[in-house]
Each structure stands twice: as structure tokens, then as C-alpha cells.
Amino acid sequence: KLLSSIEQACDICRLKKLKCSKEKPKCAKCLKNNWECRYSPKTKRSPLTRAHLTEVESRLERLE
């Protein structure tokens, strides 16, 4: 599967780190437990900047 097509777990399953069936409108866990089942939009991760990478590398060197 391509990364862009990976389905996201519902908010509660993601928060509780449960295996989500990803069914809509309610996944199996939410249906069974009568929880409100919501699927928040995916958040875009910002790409690493060179400055951040350099900072992490220098912190790693100090720890070694």
C-alpha cells in the first residue's frame, strides 16, 4: 500500500492505542462500548529543516 492511502484509526482508538477496525460511521470498538466515534483530519507533519537536523546532530555528539 502507498503511504498516502493508509487509513487512520478513529480518535479514541488512537488515543487509547487500540486496534481500530476503521469502519465508518462507527468502528467496532466504539460501537461495542457506545463511545462517540470521530475521525479527525490527518495532520500534516512539517518537513525537517536543516537547522533542526544540525541541532539534533550536535546534541547527539555531546551525549556520545
Rank of each mutant, 00 (worst) to 15 (best):
L60R: 00
K19F: 00
K1P: 15
D11V: 06
L18N: 14
T49F: 03
L48E: 01
S58L: 11
T54G: 07
K24C: 10
P47R: 10
L60W: 00
W35N: 14
K1G: 15
C37E: 00
L31W: 14
K24S: 15
Y39S: 04
N34S: 11
K19E: 03
K26E: 11
K19D: 03
R14D: 02
R62M: 15
S40I: 06
L3E: 14
Q8W: 08
L3F: 14
E7I: 10
E7W: 11
K26Y: 11
C13V: 05
S5L: 13
K29L: 08
R45C: 02
R38F: 14
C30V: 05
K29R: 07
K22A: 02
E61D: 13
R62I: 13
H52S: 05
A9G: 09
R38C: 13
S21R: 01
L18I: 07
E55R: 09
K29E: 02
K19R: 14
K44S: 09
C37T: 00
L31H: 14
T49N: 00
S46G: 01
L48V: 02
T49P: 01
K16Y: 02
L63M: 13
L3S: 08
C30N: 05
R38L: 15
A28S: 07
L3I: 11
K26F: 15
N33C: 12
T49V: 05
K16A: 00
E61L: 15
L63N: 03
S21V: 00
A51D: 05
K16D: 00
R45N: 01
L53T: 01
K29I: 05
W35K: 11
L18K: 02
S5R: 09
N34H: 11
L53R: 07
K16L: 03
K44C: 11
K29S: 07
S21K: 01
L53A: 01
I6M: 15
P41C: 06
L60A: 13
V56G: 00
R50Q: 05
L2Y: 15
N33K: 10
Y39L: 05
K16I: 02
A9W: 01
K24F: 15
L60G: 04
L53S: 01
P41K: 08
L63R: 08
R14C: 00
K17L: 03
R62A: 15
C27D: 04
I12C: 11
K26G: 14
K32S: 10
L3W: 10
K22R: 11
T54Y: 07
C10D: 02
E55H: 10
P47Q: 05
S40E: 05
R45V: 00
K32M: 13
S5W: 08
K42I: 10
P41T: 08
E64P: 05
S5D: 14
C20L: 05
L53M: 14
E7M: 08
C10E: 08
K32Q: 12
E7L: 10
I12G: 13
L63P: 00
E64M: 13
S5N: 09
T43V: 09
K1F: 13
L18H: 15
V56P: 03
L15G: 14
E57I: 03
R59C: 06
R59V: 01
D11H: 04
L53H: 03
Q8G: 08
C30L: 01
S58C: 15
K17M: 01
Y39N: 03
Y39I: 06
S58W: 13
S4E: 14
A28H: 12
S46E: 01
S21P: 08
E23K: 12
R50E: 06
C30A: 05
L31Y: 13
P41M: 07
S40K: 04
S46K: 03
P25H: 00
A9H: 06
K26C: 12
H52W: 11
K32N: 11
Q8Y: 09
R62Q: 14
E23Q: 14
L60E: 00
R59I: 01
K24I: 14
E57S: 06
K24L: 10
L48S: 03
D11Y: 04
C37I: 03
K1S: 15
K32R: 14
K17S: 04
K24E: 13
E23C: 13
C37R: 04
E64D: 08
Y39H: 06
K29W: 02
L3Q: 07
R45H: 03
K19M: 00
E61S: 11
E55Q: 10
K29P: 04
R38G: 13
K26N: 15
R59K: 10
K17G: 00
S5T: 08
C10T: 04
C20T: 04
R45L: 05
R38W: 09
K24Y: 15
C20F: 06
E55M: 14
L2S: 14
C13M: 04
K29H: 04
A9I: 07
N34M: 13
E7P: 09
C20D: 02
I12V: 13
K17E: 00
N34Q: 15
P25G: 09
I6H: 10
S21Q: 00
L60V: 15
L63D: 03
C20S: 03
E61M: 14
L15T: 11
S5C: 11
S4P: 10
K29C: 06
I12S: 09
S40L: 07
R14L: 05
R38P: 06
E36F: 12
R45Y: 00
L2D: 14
R45S: 01
R59H: 09
R14E: 00
C10I: 00
A28R: 13
P47C: 05
L15P: 02
K17P: 02
C13H: 02
C20R: 02
W35M: 12
L3Y: 10
L60N: 09
S40P: 00
K26T: 08
E55P: 00
V56C: 15
H52T: 01
L3C: 12
L53D: 00
E23G: 12
C10R: 06
L53C: 07
L18A: 15
Q8P: 10
C30K: 01
E57T: 04
K44T: 12
K22L: 05
I12Q: 11
T49S: 04
C27A: 03
N33M: 09
N33V: 07
A28C: 12
K22F: 05
T49Q: 06
E23I: 09
E61Q: 12
Y39F: 09
K17H: 08
K42C: 07
A9D: 01
C30R: 03
S58Q: 13
K29Y: 06
T49K: 02
L15Q: 08
P25Q: 06
P25T: 07
V56M: 08
K44F: 08
S40R: 06
K16F: 06
K1N: 15
H52A: 02
L63V: 08
A9F: 00
K19Y: 00
D11Q: 09
R45G: 01
C13Y: 06
H52M: 02
L18F: 03
R50D: 05
E7D: 12
A9M: 00
K44M: 12
L15Y: 14
